[in-house]
């Protein structure tokens, strides 16, 4: 762990988990671009280093700070965990590996108890796959989750406003494609179920 438990962290740290092709890395980059628009001075995002393959588990790391960020090591002690593919949950073993004060965002139709994720301080769950498919966000039959998940990220975290995310999406996609992505992100923003520990 980069920091001792209990010590105030200098940066907000996020880990995105998904499978190659679902958009975990792009989602992290879109938040980075939105953070740039909002004037964050410290922004770093990187994929888990190595050879990524379609369908294989991948991770992306994001750090945000109002001060410049000087470290580039992989995030091991995140504040926020985003899981784009719920079939990864058994191997991720989030409850054992991470602090219960994390905010966890999961693409699922189930609730925290069913997902064995009860106990985390704050959770956001949304059916991102269905919304992606309904909005035509698929490539070769695979749902692309990178933009809809951002609706849940904005709703749960207070880090970035929806207008900056929308600008980042428009800059990346443009035209009708941007509209479909924006629509999906807005639907998820409204439909994310929030669970907070009592």
């Amino acid at each position: 762990m980069a920091d001792e438990p209990g010590k105030a962290k200098k940066y907000t740290e996020v880990i995105w988990y998904g499978r190659g092709g679902q958009g975990a890395i792009t989602a992290s980059q879109l938040v980075a671009e939105a953070a740039c628009i909002e004037g964050y001075k410290g922004i770093t995002t990187a994929p888990s280093f190595g050879a990524e393959r379609r369908g294989a588990p991948v991770a992306a790391f994001l750090r945000l700070s109002r001060e410049p960020i000087r470290i580039f090591s992989q995030v091991t002690d995140p504040n926020i965990i985003v899981v784009l593919d719920p079939t990864l949950l058994p191997i991720l073993d989030l409850r054992t590996r991470f602090d219960k004060n994390c905010t966890v965002i999961v693409n699922s139709t189930r609730d925290p108890v069913e997902l064995h994720l009860d106990g985390f301080r704050k959770m956001g769950i949304a059916d991102i796959t269905s919304v992606a498919v309904e909005n035509g966000l698929t490539i070769a039959g695979v749902a692309i989750l990178n933009t809809p998940i951002l609706g849940a990220f904005v709703r749960l975290t207070d880090l970035i406003g929806m207008p900056s995310i929308e600008t980042a999406i428009k800059n990346k996609f443009g035209g009708g494609k941007a509209e479909r992505n924006l629509a999906a992100a807005r639907i998820i923003y409204d439909s994310t179920r929030i669970y907070e520990r009592g």
Binding site: A32, C36, A46, F49, I69
Partner: peptide, 12 residues
Amino acid sequence: YDGYVLSHTLMP
């Protein structure tokens, strides 16, 4: 510059 650590990390 360090491969991946800088080559593949986005920053301002």
